[in-house]
Design a protein around this nucleic acid. Structure first.
Lengths: 341, 341
DNA sequence: CTGTTAGCGCTTTCAT
DNA sequence: ATGAAAGCGCTAACAG
């Protein structure tokens, strides 16, 4: 109970093959310095005994402490954005024989630290982090300890590492401009908590987009900290009760856009009020009207982050870079409705 | 380059605190047998030096070889079903201090073996597997080696382990009966590859549902091996060209249902041909008509699988159980359209 | 209550 | 080309 049967070790193979453990180690690791005949024989014994190297023991002993594993700390693994990112990283890691640990942070800085620690204790070679709090300095120890770190989705604070983000501000500005091009002058912004860096960037993009279109910024059209379908519903109701209500909406996040689709539907205004969402979602093209979105590209973000990470793990020493992955405006219908009055 | 700076070890703490390594080990692991004053002092030094235990070394030495990690082998981490399952498992693992390794199999039995091996080499305490091939006997070694294994989504072959599945057949039968109740007698079935066990079960459910409704089984209404939107489109066209075409469709999988929604839309038949999908999806309620589905419950499957896994890891020795998680028919509109002729 | 010693499975270092 | 010995950081087993 609780005890595990002893598995075949290098030593077992060595004894059986009549060679030293070092020779077996050489064969298993494909190192030079073993006569072909010996190599073949050892390989046969390895196969026959079903020997499997113990990665933990290997990591412990090696000078570089490599474990052939990396960890991902994302917002929520069940969320399509995180899931696509994870999958993209996995696809880069697999061919290298590197396994992936994954965890959800749920915007909790405490959990960020705890999990970074837990993964650090397991000597992962690298960490891909979507920062949850506004201070990542707790990672300094890991970094000086030799763990490669790359941030995604949001710029980190307190550490200087490679970072891959979407062009949030520009993307939202595009969306705003698109609505303005369709004649809207009253464009509302519904965004996430201002404590979230990307939410701030998107708000900046909103301002910039308005400015670019020569429209004034009206704080009454801005609702922030929207974190549930109910909050969306309330916010929308309040906006529509304004003396000069918006004729177009910009949903600056996944779930907010979804909430807006539902809320507009409920008020039967979905064909009268224009909507542009930030972040694409499945079936956006099948709704009526189909939803125009500013799409992020989580797969490219993940792939890029993984590439940068493996560069670092491979010993790259340049100054940390920030890569911006462009968003793309996908025109589908909801963002092209004309102003309704 | 490649070398990692030495981290603080138990020994460092022991030297600094003026005690033996064993005493530090006791404090770190919360074992009894340390005087309160000593304990406090050691804890302070641990904190001051920023000591972090090395889980790899601990695993290597412990008799039970526990690593406080488990692995998930799922079909595709980017797919909402797998993602929800992963998240549910993570939520059970986290409070136990157990980290989660995850990988996608993409229906590839070779990858199943390779990844099971890779995780075995890292001495995970448990494995949650959504079987990709039709032979899981390669896991016998892991199991006798003490790794707990639980299968999800599909029953495994060649090993006898705890398994958590949806009531696939019953779920599809429910869907068929629902359509029959609404007057349909010509109900088509579009399913995945017959080599996939769940696809077979769902087909069985289709037959059973027809039988239950007193309807004949017409092979011309059955299309299997549908693996892309184009295939769906073609299949639908062929079905509608029959002398006596179906008035209702059952999409026996995620992507097939999505494809059917698109294809019907393209033919402008979405309000004339009834549709029931297997597997729920986001915004199914916002389409028009909203899509009636037989929903699986990946979160419950994941949670249950994780519970069973930790029972085993904890030493449970009963005969392996199979838990069936019920599906739920969600009535939304598309499945209640009357026969169109 | 506390410490000493051995050794997990492997790679490193150095010898042959 | 091969091997012997040391030791990675930790816990087990046993002494005191």
């Amino acid at each position: 109970m609780g005890d595990r049967r002893r598995r075949t070790t290098l030593r077992d193979v060595a004894t059986e093959a009549g060679v030293s453990v070092k020779t077996v180690s050489r064969v298993v690791n494909g190192e030079a310095g073993v006569a072909p005949a010996v190599r073949a024989h050892v390989a046969a014994v390895v196969e026959q005994l079903g020997y499997r190297p113990d990665v933990g023991a290997r990591t412990l002993r090696r000078n570089d402490r490599r474990s052939a594993s990396i960890a991902l700390l994302l917002e929520d693994l069940a969320n399509p954005y995180s899931a696509a990112l994870l999958r993209a990283v996995e696809d880069v890691a697999r061919p290298r024989g590197v396994v992936v640990l994954a965890a959800s942070l749920d915007e909790d800085p405490v959990r960020e630290r705890a999990l970074a620690r837990a993964f650090g204790s397991r000597s992962v070679d690298g960490l891909v982090l979507a920062p949850a709090g506004d201070d990542q300095s707790h990672l300094v120890e890991e970094i000086t300890g030799g763990t490669a770190v790359v941030c995604v989705d949001r710029a980190p604070a307190g550490i200087d590492v490679d970072t891959v983000v979407s062009t949030d501000a520009a993307g939202v500005a595009d969306g705003v401009r698109h609505l303005a091009d369709h004649g809207h002058t009253r464009i509302a912004f519904l965004g996430d908590l201002a404590t979230i860096a990307t939410a701030r960037l998107r708000h900046d993009g909103y301002r910039a987009g308005l400015a670019g279109a020569g429209l004034p910024y009206d704080p009454r059209l801005v609702v922030r900290g929207v974190r549930s379908d109910e909050a969306v519903q309330e916010a929308l109701t309040a906006l529509l009760a304004l003396p000069d209500p918006p004729t177009a909406l910009l949903g600056a996040q996944n779930l907010i856009t979804a909430g807006l689709v539902r809320a507009l539907r409920r008020l039967d205004l979905h064909h009268r009020i224009a909507l542009v969402g930030y972040d694409d979602f499945l079936f956006a093209d099948l709704l009526s009207p189909a939803v125009t979105v500013v799409a992020q590209d989580p797969a490219t973000i993940g792939r890029t982050a993984a590439d940068l990470l493996f560069d670092r793990i491979g010993g790259a020493r340049e100054a940390p870079r920030t890569v911006e992955v462009p968003t793309r405006l996908i025109v589908r219908g909801s963002g092209e409705l004309p102003p309704d009055r």
